[in-house]
Amino acid sequence: MSDQPRLSAQEIVERLGTAVSRRARIRAVTALVAGLSGAALVSLLWLTEPEPLPGRTRLAFALLTAICLAWAGYGGWLLTRKVVLFAADRVVAAWIALSASTATTVLLAVIAAGRGTGLWPVLAVGAVFAAVSLLLLARAHRERARLLRRRAELTT
């Protein structure tokens, strides 16, 4: 027998947070920096465009800025977590990806329809992005459910 005390399931779960935090922190910093950089770039492009901008163009700039800020917010949220997230971060990221791909597809489809140009290529590419986002979302939910079931098994 070992002289070391046995750890409870909760103590094991708490210690897991430090074991996986480096990768999660790299992901968080990447999302934060990329989101802030993207938001700054799009905002500067928007501000330096000659006036008056068409409404659709202003909407596109606003949408792209919002998407970038969502990723920056996600990165900041991850950096502030001190507990094991049980793949909640992946679920949130997949929802952001699905929302961004759907909103972008709708905006581009409205622009394409308004111009009378290729609507079907926009819808086809948008459908691919939305489908990939949906697959990632389903996978993230499955992984989260698996981890939560495993935690419940360990704590009972």
Score class of each variant (00 low, 15 high):
97 A>D: 14
27 R>H: 13
60 A>H: 06
142 R>K: 11
143 E>H: 14
95 W>Y: 15
18 T>F: 08
75 G>S: 03
94 A>P: 06
125 V>M: 12
66 A>F: 13
113 A>M: 13
53 L>I: 05
8 S>N: 00
30 T>W: 06
43 S>Q: 13
156 T>Y: 05
100 A>R: 03
106 V>D: 02
118 G>N: 04
41 L>V: 12
148 L>W: 11
15 R>I: 02
33 V>Q: 04
125 V>Y: 10
70 A>Y: 03
144 R>P: 08
149 R>L: 12
107 L>N: 00
47 L>P: 03
9 A>I: 00
7 L>S: 01
47 L>W: 14
110 V>I: 12
90 R>A: 14
100 A>E: 04
82 K>N: 11
21 S>E: 08
46 W>R: 09
69 L>F: 04
13 V>E: 15
2 S>I: 07
83 V>G: 02
127 A>Y: 02
65 T>K: 09
120 W>A: 15
106 V>M: 01
33 V>D: 02
97 A>V: 03
119 L>K: 01
107 L>F: 00
89 D>N: 13
36 L>W: 00
137 L>A: 07
8 S>Y: 00
8 S>C: 01
69 L>T: 03
92 V>F: 08
69 L>E: 07
21 S>P: 02
101 S>C: 07
109 A>L: 04
11 E>D: 09
95 W>V: 14
34 A>S: 12
31 A>R: 10
14 E>N: 09
33 V>E: 06
147 L>P: 04
93 A>S: 15
85 L>V: 15
98 L>K: 06
91 V>Q: 12
94 A>R: 05
3 D>E: 12
95 W>H: 11
125 V>T: 13
98 L>F: 10
43 S>N: 05
62 A>S: 13
86 F>G: 11
6 R>W: 09
84 V>G: 08
102 T>L: 03
40 A>V: 08
141 H>Q: 15
73 G>C: 02
1 M>L: 13
93 A>Q: 12
142 R>Y: 10
3 D>N: 09
63 L>N: 06
124 A>Q: 08
31 A>I: 01
76 G>P: 05
120 W>C: 07
104 T>E: 11
105 T>H: 02
40 A>T: 09
41 L>A: 14
133 S>G: 14
104 T>W: 06
86 F>T: 09
128 V>D: 08
47 L>D: 08
2 S>V: 04
110 V>Y: 04
106 V>G: 01
7 L>C: 03
128 V>N: 11
20 V>Q: 14
144 R>F: 08
68 C>I: 01
155 T>F: 03
87 A>N: 15
97 A>C: 07
96 I>A: 09
116 G>R: 08
68 C>H: 02
52 P>N: 00
89 D>W: 08
45 L>I: 04
56 R>T: 15
96 I>F: 14
148 L>G: 10
11 E>M: 01
38 G>C: 01
119 L>N: 03
102 T>N: 02
121 P>W: 01
7 L>F: 04
118 G>H: 00
77 W>K: 04
61 F>M: 10
107 L>C: 01
52 P>E: 05
68 C>D: 04
121 P>N: 06
85 L>F: 11
153 E>R: 15
144 R>M: 12
69 L>N: 02
92 V>M: 14
79 L>W: 10
34 A>Q: 07
85 L>A: 15
95 W>Q: 14
53 L>G: 04
132 V>D: 07
141 H>T: 09
73 G>S: 10
86 F>P: 07
34 A>E: 03
86 F>M: 10
28 A>Y: 05
